[in-house]
Design a protein around this nucleic acid. Structure first.
Lengths: 141, 141
DNA sequence: CGGAATCCACGCCGATACTG
DNA sequence: CAGTATCGGCGTGGATTCCG
């Protein structure tokens, strides 16, 4: 194993008071929500999962489809996703080697949930653009 | 303005082929989804928004509630959230100065959407824990 | 083909000091 | 009180090289 760190953050980071908060997750940096958040927000995970939604792909196919990803980062990303049970990896004992990647049920489940966030962004991107324009303009004082 | 970078990533990163993909967002690093993703996934934004869900808070109150955040990062985080129109900032012209922060409607809307993701994580964290344990065990060969 | 290992650059973020 | 400015560590990720 090379990278695939266990997200072993250090330092405590707990909210001392959070009355009636709709977000039940605490603020520990290693809490479950943070781990999933880090996964879906990292540079390539979401894109890889989106592509695998259409079916099984080989390593090289992903490398070609995810334009801009390095071999190293694709490997690291796939290992993380595999470790979290979101993607399954199948090695075919042939020469040349062939490795297939596909989504697990858990991965498809997460994809569906993330889609809600993508949808929100699409329907509110103009609001954000307007807000930014206003902010940047008034900041240019 | 000190930090608050406009997420000015460089380099293109487009998916060349993505047939029937449920994720309609392209893979450009500066696409809207990526920007929102970066915002909700950064270290403090989500936590700040969660706290503001309960009502208006002052800078110092946030600094105390978000245990572990530095003054600098709280400032930067709030500026980003304000720029995106997710949080509103109200300066009271008194001495000592008093600044109130609260969620905008847009911020509340995003919070609600993110909550779905938090819920998903809570109901699937055991699956992920099991998957990780299995992976780590088989990797310890 | 599908990696693993190494080196390195850049950006995030924390610590600290200073200010209206 | 609510910032701003500066410095520096360190983690993420890109480029490159080598391997089964």
């Amino acid at each position: 194993m090379t990278e695939v760190r266990t997200s072993e953050y250090v330092g405590s980071c707990e909210v001392t008071d959070m009355p009636n908060d709709p977000f039940q997750w605490d603020a520990r940096e290693d809490c479950e929500v943070r781990q999933i958040l880090d996964r879906i927000a990292d540079k390539w995970s979401l894109l890889v999962m989106a592509l695998l939604e259409n079916g099984t792909l080989r390593f090289t196919e992903l490398l070609r489809l995810v334009d801009g990803v390095s071999q190293r980062m694709l490997t690291v990303t796939l290992r993380q996703l595999e470790r979290d049970g979101l993607v399954s990896r199948t090695v075919h004992p042939v020469v040349p080697p062939r490795v297939d990647y596909s989504l697990t049920d858990l991965g498809r489940s997460l994809n569906a949930t993330v889609l809600a966030l993508v949808t929100w962004t699409e329907s509110h991107q103009s609001d954000i653009a307007v807000a930014r324009a206003r902010y940047d303009e008034s900041a240019a004082s």
